[in-house]
Design a protein around this nucleic acid. Structure first.
Lengths: 219, 219
DNA sequence: AAACCTATTGTTAGTTT
DNA sequence: CAAACTAACAATAGGTT
């Protein structure tokens, strides 16, 4: 009998001041968590309110992460030239120009893809959780499926992530970060919550530099 | 009559789906609240982690709001010109020889990856649909299983094939090692479901076999 | 070192003033 | 009606594996 005092497994969240986190490690962890949280919020805002949102984050190490709906550069252009008759297809300019621009463009598109996947990953965990609760009675089958599917998804996406990493490695010297990201992406799930496909589609289109659709934008 | 039903002053926050808010008024209110929340999160991220953060939001009416630390313009500049003062030798290897064809090749490969993403998206929508029916009958669960597993294998092979193709193109000398590392590390991070090891092993073998010859090719 | 856990703080949907 | 309010929901700090 170990008597009474059963300590709680965790103290839970504690209040913190909004100051620079001194611990290098804690700061890095916090950066990852909150960056994902920020992108999720941005995604929700754009969906809930049909707003166009872009966010760019630079890690202390100087690495850039971005989120954009419909696309980062499109919105940035709009922001810098509120009066301009935009409509210019940046993509054409970039591709038609020199190699340097193309490489930068590829880098940017990769960033968008990764941001998109990150947001999706966050939303994914929500759906999986809901699904877990549902598998009450007749779910030995589902349990088996989940185990099977879980493993396969992981590998599937790992292969995909590795492919991305390889490509990126050929463009920029970020292989290490890419590899870590591939690990993270490997845990992604595949179901898409309702309302997400639209956003997903737009991001995809934006990646091409072809922002078709959305004829219902009120100016 | 005051007696029984003492209504709470408010029902409090209710759960909502992340989809476009139909009510014009509610959407506007939500936009204001969440925009403020987003900027606050951005601010906290920048302070806590010493990161540079910029966020731009356009209301459905077209009005622009922004947050930026140190400033939106500065960060956007940095974002659009990742190479800055020649810190990264972005395409050091790739452009070393003949930039034109290499870039074209990268473009092609990027296109392939994007195509894969599209396939994945279509597949996800399929899965989502199947999931809806799953809550109805058990027999349909089995149908879902079949569809899921079948489609997944197909995608796995596509993803893997793409990864191999990239590696085979000799974009990066370390590509094969990265791919192997990704798989090995992935295996350690979580238990692999029964029956999965076979596939895993096969994947590993194939990866080694394919890249053995091309891996050490200089470019 | 990344993912999980959980208590706790932080955010916000709906309501009221 | 924008601001305040309230209670439920969401995000996350710290700890564990």
């Amino acid at each position: 009998m170990v008597a009474a005092a059963r300590r709680r497994p965790s103290l839970g969240r504690q209040k913190i001041e909004i100051r620079r986190i001194e611990s290098e490690e804690a700061r890095q962890v916090c950066f990852s968590k909150r960056r994902a949280g920020l992108f999720k919020k941005a995604s929700e805002l754009s969906i809930l309110c049909s707003a166009d949102v872009a966010a760019v984050v630079f890690s202390p190490a100087g690495k850039a992460y971005s989120f954009g709906h419909p696309s980062v550069e499109l919105l940035l252009e709009r922001f810098e030239a509120p009066e301009g008759q935009g409509q210019v297809h940046v993509q054409g300019e970039a591709v038609g120009g020199e190699g340097q621009s193309v490489v930068a463009e590829l880098n940017r598109q990769y960033g968008d893809l990764r941001a998109m996947l990150e947001v999706e990953k966050a939303r994914r965990e929500e759906v999986e959780e809901a699904m877990d609760k549902e598998r009450g009675a007749r779910s030995q089958v589902l349990a088996w499926v989940e185990a099977e599917v879980g493993g396969m998804e992981k590998e599937e996406l790992m292969a995909f992530g590795a492919a991305l990493a390889v490509v990126q490695h050929g463009v920029a010297a970020h292989a290490d970060q890419m590899l870590r990201d591939a690990m993270v992406l490997g845990r992604m799930s595949r179901a898409v919550p309702q309302g997400m496909e639209n956003y997903y589609f737009h991001l995809l289109q934006a990646g091409q530099g072809h922002t078709a659709g959305a004829g219902d934008r009120p100016f």
